[in-house]
């Protein structure tokens, strides 16, 4: 069809369709890039996890909801806390497939370590190993926000926080997942005590207080965040005691 200015509407329409075509499929995008842009191996199953370390204990909590696209609840009893051995607890949010793979990798490494050295790995070593394993997938990362908690060699509680590619840091408390921006300021206030002046007397962080703070954190998160809810999975590890687990009910809406 030849276009001439005799029919301005046709010219306009041709121009519009050419524009929309270019917008949808710009010529500078080569085939590989188009393919790469579309291919998405990840999904996000929502949920949140949190951990607080104390003098000789560590409290780890997570919700048990698995959701899709932040609307559909797929499963209400998903386990996001994985007890790896007597002193190491892994808790992860993010893409559940990657979470399971990561757990499998760590478990087999721990197994091999026990086989080679005839002793369980300590949480400090495991933390460094996890950081490296996350980084080995630097260019095709695990879609996970991991937290490793446990009781270290000296019997103190330890929480290690990671970004998806293994930036490691040992902290007193940490959270990851969809409700991280809500839980962390809450812990900053209650555990870190950042809002009160230095002279004020601060309550000590006992095991009871830590447990109730983790519970509160998830109640808060369930109230305001759609992909967090159903149940709190609470895991408590204390120096010289077996790991204790419990489930508590949470909002189901």
């Amino acid at each position: 069809m030849t276009l001439s200015m005799d029919n301005p509407m046709a010219v306009m329409n041709a121009f519009k369709s050419a524009m929309s075509q270019v917008r949808a499929d710009p010529p500078w995008r080569d085939a590989a890039r188009k393919h790469g842009d579309r291919w998405n191996p990840y999904s996000f199953e929502g949920g949140s996890t949190a951990a607080i370390a104390g003098e000789d204990f560590v409290v780890v909590g997570s919700d048990t909801r698995m959701s899709q696209f932040e609307v559909n609840v797929m499963f209400r009893e998903a386990e996001k806390i994985h007890v790896l051995n007597d002193s190491i607890i892994l808790t992860t949010s993010g893409f559940y497939g990657d979470v399971l793979q990561l757990k499998r990798v760590l478990e087999s490494r721990l197994h091999k370590y026990r086989f080679d050295y005839r002793t369980d790995m300590t949480v400090d070593l495991c933390a460094e190993m996890l950081a490296r394993n996350l980084y080995y997938k630097r260019f095709f990362p695990y879609y996970t926000g991991a937290i490793l908690a446990g009781i270290d060699e000296k019997g103190r509680g330890a929480v290690f926080s990671y970004d998806p590619i293994g930036c490691i840091e040992r902290l007193q408390y940490s959270a990851s997942g969809a409700a991280e921006p809500m839980i962390i300021p809450f812990f900053d206030c209650q555990v870190g005590q950042v809002t009160v002046s230095k002279e004020t007397e601060k309550p000590a962080l006992t095991l009871e207080r830590a447990i109730s703070l983790v519970k509160d954190a998830f109640r808060v998160a369930a109230e305001r965040e759609t992909s967090t809810g159903d149940k709190i999975h609470l895991v408590v590890a204390a120096h010289g005691k077996p790991i204790h687990q419990e489930f508590l009910l949470l909002r189901e809406d």
Binding site: A179, P181, M182, I184, F186, C189, V220, R224
Partner: peptide, 29 residues
């Protein structure tokens, strides 16, 4: 960040002093 902390601080029928304290703590956190 605020909504999470507020949820923890808010109570029914707070007086002015208590309310000021809750708001400031939430804001700072």
């Amino acid at each position: 960040y605020l909504l999470g902390v507020c949820e923890g601080f808010w109570r029914e029928n707070m007086g002015p002093d208590e309310l000021f304290e809750a708001t400031s703590q939430a804001l700072l956190s």
